[in-house]
Design a protein around this nucleic acid. Sequence first.
DNA 1: CTGTTTGATTGGTCTGACCACTTTAAAGAG
DNA 2: CTCTTTAAAGTGGTCAGACCAATCAAACAG
Lengths: 184, 184
Amino acid sequence: MHGKYASSFHENISKIRSLIVQASLAPGDRLPSERELAETLSISRASVREALRALSFLGIVETRHGGGTFLCEQDRHRYIEILSEFIVTKQTKASDIVDMLRLLERLAFSEVEPTPERVKLLEANLANDREFRQQLILGLDNELFIRIWSEVNRFYDGTDAGELYTIEERTQLLEMWRKVRMPE
Amino acid sequence: MHGKYASSFHENISKIRSLIVQASLAPGDRLPSERELAETLSISRASVREALRALSFLGIVETRHGGGTFLCEQDRHRYIEILSEFIVTKQTKASDIVDMLRLLERLAFSEVEPTPERVKLLEANLANDREFRQQLILGLDNELFIRIWSEVNRFYDGTDAGELYTIEERTQLLEMWRKVRMPE
DNA sequence: CTGTTTGATTGGTCTGACCACTTTAAAGAG
DNA sequence: CTCTTTAAAGTGGTCAGACCAATCAAACAG
């Protein structure tokens, strides 16, 4: 009748969400460990991880290596509100979108550690404006941030605008990033 | 010097994106299989899957069980544009957000198959408006849709409005869903 | 040419192990 | 007793190999 594998991706997300509600977890609280969740919900740890990754992208939970998985603080949701309000109040002029993107990307430069691998990766994509910016953002360890950037950038792509930075600017940004964060 | 595990989540996403660009894949094209990607990029298949899941949530790729992983059609991006335009042109009146949510959720009812498990799950959450709607949406097999709903709903939550449906409406929706989709 | 069967391919899930990071508590120094 | 150091347990991250489930394509039968 039923197949061997009973669980499914979306069901697992529902299960975890139900568990969060039943346990009356508040923002900031820690969820049971992945191993506990797997046993409690009778699914494999790999499936638990896929579900948690999805909830992470939805801005519902946040994982810390070695620490645990936590319910997101409500504050993180304000990213979205700020973005929405921005779009509304500013009437979405193209120039504002550009400002927003530049702001987010400058922030990324200050947050992301310039490891040799990342620097090399950005150098390789120096000629492609869009790729360059995307690779930079993907270095961030904040999935909600990535998602918001993705939204704004998609909006930007829809305007058929040209490059956000000239290649000279990109080169300069990269150089500055390396020097300021690794001074020697 | 270096640890045993060389790969990291964000690097893997970058690797796959670079591969997409280098291979000059166009929207609709199929990516190499997960097993091929794992071997090519020298990372485990589990890590490939986590990266692909992320790209899926970003609306960049789309997976089909047994079929493969494909670059998203540009059309799917229009969801976001439609949403953005909606927010802008409609001045984000609370009533419009409500309409939008109701629209999305009616759509979900017509798309999601009413399996006994799902029906049972919704019945269990009949008393909680927010949970009820979230569980419904999570039954969808379209992560971009889920993401958009999530955005709008978060905006809705920010307005401190009450329940979107009364419990009578929820009961009625559930009953209708079961009957229309499983007529006997 | 059309429809069916069958084998290979591919994404989905499971298991169990080990690695890297955190947290905690025990052990030690003062 | 207090503070520091250190060891161990706990947790998320990665890996490997296996099998399940859905899809696809080639071979086959009509």
